[in-house]
Design a protein around this nucleic acid. Sequence first.
DNA 1: CATTCTTAATAGTCTGACATCTGACGTTCG
DNA 2: CGAACGTCAGATGTCAGACTATTAAGAATG
Lengths: 241, 241
Amino acid sequence: MSIRQDTRHLYLQVIEQIKRDIENGIYLEKQKLPSEFQLSKSLGVSRATLREALRILEEDGVVTRRHGVGTFVNPKPLFTSGIEELNSVTGMINDSGMLPGSQYLSADLVEATEEDKKRFAPVELHNIAKVERVRTADEQPVVFCVDKIPEHLIPIDHVREADSLFSTLEDYTGKRIGYAVTHIEPIGYHERISPILNCEPDQALLLLKQMHYSEDDVPMLLSSNYFRADKFSFHVLRKRV
Amino acid sequence: MSIRQDTRHLYLQVIEQIKRDIENGIYLEKQKLPSEFQLSKSLGVSRATLREALRILEEDGVVTRRHGVGTFVNPKPLFTSGIEELNSVTGMINDSGMLPGSQYLSADLVEATEEDKKRFAPVELHNIAKVERVRTADEQPVVFCVDKIPEHLIPIDHVREADSLFSTLEDYTGKRIGYAVTHIEPIGYHERISPILNCEPDQALLLLKQMHYSEDDVPMLLSSNYFRADKFSFHVLRKRV
DNA sequence: CATTCTTAATAGTCTGACATCTGACGTTCG
DNA sequence: CGAACGTCAGATGTCAGACTATTAAGAATG
């Protein structure tokens, strides 16, 4: 038994607790939450702290607050797991109820190109591990992946054994991947990749070229994923600003 | 002189004020903001209110807060105007410093398909205006658009004259488009559209199929935009959840 | 010189109070 | 009877001040 299980800030824990409670059906959609006074008592935090948590939840669209009325649980988003939610390819295949797999085409230590260096800046790098894989769902090839990882982050031997590069990288470095800047590009036909994915000539691919960063903004992984558009569909909630 | 200029909640005004100050260079990138105590004094609000504002700014990635150290202005938006920011095609072309234009191919009142009805649900519709246009930037064709608008929202005559369907629709209905659910799809070669956009056979297109909603969630416009991928680039900040 | 201690500054949290808004109910008056 | 108004309770919004936890940097120590 540790003295202190959770050293993170209180308001973050409160956010998670409330999200959990909504998830678990303790607070129902469209229903009013207990008043701030009651909630702060039952959560064991001050009203000020609770309010910071509720602000964020409101900002995230989880709840709606109305002055003089109360705080209400928003109906579930219809549009979850859009493209703005970052997930590993393994995770995406898992989520669709299929069995993820990998076929290694190559895994080499190569010299970083100028573009690589620019992308990974300000981290200095000379050699990078370049991994080419075909990702499969129920044995069928669906994604072609080119991943580049700075040499010092993970030994190349580990890379070869990994099924999910994502979690291997996280386990090994102890850092969690927090976000990725992703460029979206359509590919009509790719001389090399399309045949590998068993694509008909008219089957287009969607290329997501992503620079992954740790939660503290350290560049960790540059990957180019070519998705068969008939196997994956992406959507996004675009908001007017 | 009104009794009261701004009836919105204080913390919202504080957020805007701080954003303005950052915009205007009063607070510089990477620099530390004044302490919460000082800031609350200079803004004339309580520390609690200021903190709610700072929380949101942190959540939005505008600032970073470090316990015991201070609040810092984040270096800035490498990632602005990603795909999650909804903008009309006219707006996008404008933003890139080019002259937007439209070429009408057709504008007819047609019967809604079953799929249309499903998309626009729960609004009931029978006939919809279907508009096909080629959007140009500096006279060059860059986007092919198919827009569908429920008949009752806007007379078809108005549609034909409109350069920006987006703003015409907003002006006419008095409702502002708030967001759009967008499906992302790569198109390799389109028999009809590719030639219209003067595309080489290997030039892929990016199709954004969007259902636009007003701020109060009323479906207003269904549009399919085929972008020349060499003329537009989209990116998105994907966050781990 | 390296390590530890002290201290100042700052964000995090708590308490209790008052202000303002909303919705519901009851009263008044035409 | 019905519409307008008044009142009130309960909720979120805002405030002031105090205390805690964390960090960084300088001082003291070995």
